[in-house]
Amino acid sequence: MIGPHPVFNPSKGFPVNFKRFGAPAAVLAVAALALTGCAANESGSAAPSETATTSTLSGTINAAGASSQGAAQEAWIAQFQTANPDVTINYDPSGSGAGRETFASGGSDFAGSDSYLKDEELAASFASCVPGTTAVDLPVYISPIAVIFNVDGVKNLNLDASTLAKIFKGDITTWNDPAIAALNADAKLPATPITAVHRSDDSGTTKNFADYLNQVAPDVWTEKPADTFPFQSGEGAQGTSGVVDAVTNGVGTIGYADASRAGSLGVAKIKVGDEFVGYTADAAAAVVNDSPLVEGRAADDLAIQLNRTTTDPTHYPLVLVSYAIVCTDYADAAKGELVKSYVGYMASADGQAEAAKSAGAAPLSADLQTKVAAVIATIK
């Protein structure tokens, strides 16, 4: 088994070379992976837009952040480096909060984050950007969040937002609690204690999960959504893979994770309107398409204010939008050109199709792709 991923150290750089972990197009098996393209150049995958003989790009991109993007980043890196063999891309799935901090300090060239920059972060400086300029949030990855569980004898599970909130707050502590039983009349629920697994690191997935509960069950989940899990309950685990491992190897466990990582675990349906709904990429995309941009931001900042209170059962409101956080004006112009090309590929129709194939992501709508492309075109 591979151990926990190396932590980024600005004096030593990113942990690189995933050649020993297997083929670069493989789906991430653990959150412990610092994704890099050294082995990706060996991939036989088709180039996304240009061939190795025509590419003039060269250099290295270091990025860090959301572990939810892990499988997509691995596929994106493999495809992009096949087309641009003189480019090396390193992505450390250290978590959204760590990724934003690393980028702000100049330790990486862009960040992946499941939550957009807070106002106070925007007001600070970004070491990679030209002084006096700031960074912007560009949506590049849309995915459902799966409520994963491992309960002996239970294959199907229905939960509404209120019950889910009480489980993760620690108000509901056994699987045969009357509130759960009322939603699952046909299930044989054991008296097993519930172990609710949350992210121990600052996580945009946590913020999105908390935002859903706060919007839909505000009388129970009273804490303001944040990257840090707000309650002293349950069990913490590092990164997406840490949560998945804890749920998989525990007894009576439940957790939340990017849907691409659910694997063979049980996945609960959540109540939307009068129906219990399972996740699909289309249902996740529908919520994003019906949500406005965050008000009061610069015109080139595309942070989305998700509206999760829908009662339309064709929508799955427990969704995350993951961003590439970039400078539009890089202090190092050559680095800016590399980021412009790579993030441009991530957000393109080809890149979105690759993320859908490799990670089960929901592609950006044509309208959102156009908006993102317009901002990327200004990066320098």
Rank of each mutant, 00 (worst) to 15 (best):
I270A: 05
V272T: 12
T328K: 13
G278R: 07
K335G: 12
S291F: 13
R297V: 09
T280D: 10
A285R: 14
Y323D: 09
T310F: 01
A298Q: 07
C327L: 12
G336N: 09
A331L: 05
A283Y: 00
V294P: 04
L293F: 15
G296I: 05
A299K: 13
L293K: 14
Q305I: 01
I270T: 06
I270M: 04
I325T: 14
D332S: 11
F276I: 04
A333I: 12
V319I: 14
P317D: 10
A298S: 05
C327Q: 14
V326H: 05
R308D: 06
G336S: 11
A331F: 00
A281I: 02
A334C: 02
V326E: 02
T280V: 02
T311A: 10
L318T: 13
T314D: 14
Q305D: 15
Y279H: 14
L320Q: 15
F276N: 05
C327V: 03
G336C: 08
T280S: 15
L302E: 05
A324K: 00
N307P: 00
P292V: 14
T280W: 02
L320A: 15
T310H: 06
D274H: 00
A285N: 04
A281Y: 12
T328C: 00
F276V: 06
T280H: 07
Y323I: 09
T309K: 11
G296F: 01
V287K: 03
P292R: 12
I304K: 10
A283N: 10
S322F: 04
Y323A: 13
G278M: 05
I270W: 01
G296H: 06
V272C: 10
D332C: 04
Q305F: 02
A284W: 01
D312Y: 00
T310N: 07
I325S: 03
S291C: 07
D312Q: 02
V277K: 03
P313R: 02
L320P: 03
A324G: 07
T314G: 08
V319Y: 04
I304V: 15
A286V: 06
D290G: 06
A286M: 04
Q305N: 14
E275A: 15
S322Y: 03
N289L: 01
P313T: 10
T280L: 02
A283E: 11
G296L: 03
D282G: 00
T311G: 00
V277L: 03
K271G: 09
K335N: 15
V326A: 08
A298W: 00
T280M: 07
T310C: 11
D282T: 14
Y316N: 10
Y316F: 14
Y323R: 11
Y279W: 13
V277N: 08
L302C: 03
L306W: 09
P292L: 13
Y316S: 13
P292F: 05
A299L: 07
I304C: 09
H315Y: 01
D300S: 08
P292K: 06
L293G: 03
D282C: 00
D329R: 13
V277E: 05
V321H: 10
V272D: 08
L318F: 08
